[in-house]
């Protein structure tokens, strides 16, 4: 209850940090989708590219987050603003699940359905738009879901480079050796992750093909 009291005593700060947190996660997820879904579609159709692309995304995923923030710091345009840098780093982390699930979802479409479509004179774009993407949507969304949950957690680290977010409470709490403050950042972050998981999961079920 001490945690709740701390939050109630600092409402403006709490809301600002939550807003920042959502800003970081929101932008990075949108960017990762804009980048990852087309990449996943591409590698599902160009077999030769799937290993290098998935391998690359895997390597990025393997870099410790604090180190990645550090690596990006000297990059000219990125280093100017810490939130910009944090969004790029989070985007890179969110790529792997989105690319991989887009790839898996599209490759999972029944070949007979594709052959029938092609034989009927559908163009590759029409097949993509009317067949592959609708049938892969729920698999792609489950990748987005994983990406969002990872991002909510990782975004707490962004406070280390001054990008704000609920991580601010956590780092401050660690410095002050005050569990109350740590939990004021950690619990809301966990709740955000659960809400995101639930929300995208709901969407995923709604859009699942019969």
């Amino acid at each position: 209850m001490n945690v709740l009291r701390f939050i109630l005593q600092n409402p403006t700060q709490f809301f600002d940090l939550t807003r920042e947190h959502l800003w970081l996660v929101g932008w990075s997820t949108v960017l990762a989708m804009l980048l990852g879904i087309p990449l996943g579609i591409l590698i599902a159709h160009r077999q030769g590219l799937s290993n290098p692309v998935l391998g690359g995304a895997n390597i990025i995923q393997a870099i410790p987050s604090l180190a990645l923030f550090g690596f990006l710091l000297p990059v000219p345009w990125l280093g100017e603003r810490s939130d910009r840098l944090a969004i790029v780093a989070l985007t890179l982390y969110a790529l792997l699940p989105i690319i991989r699930n887009t790839f898996t979802g599209i490759r999972g479409v029944d070949p007979a359905v594709m052959e029938a479509g092609r034989g009927m004179g559908m163009t590759e774009w029409q097949l993509l738009w009317h067949v592959e993407l609708p049938l892969a949507t729920s698999v792609i969304l489950s990748g987005v879901r994983v990406a969002v949950v990872i991002s909510v957690g990782l975004a707490t680290i962004a406070a280390a480079i001054g990008a704000g977010g609920l991580g601010e409470f956590i780092f401050r709490g660690v410095a002050m050796v005050d569990n109350r403050v740590i939990l004021a950042g950690a619990i809301p972050a966990a709740i955000l992750a659960l809400l995101a998981d639930f929300g995208v999961g709901w969407l995923e079920r709604r859009l699942r093909p019969r």
Binding site: A112, V113, M114, A116, G117, H130, L135, P209, R210
Partner: peptide
């Protein structure tokens, strides 16, 4: 201009 029917039918499930 050519109808095409296959054994697996390949109806669009959605």
């Amino acid at each position: 201009g050519i109808g095409y029917v296959i054994q697996e039918v390949g109806l669009f499930p959605h």
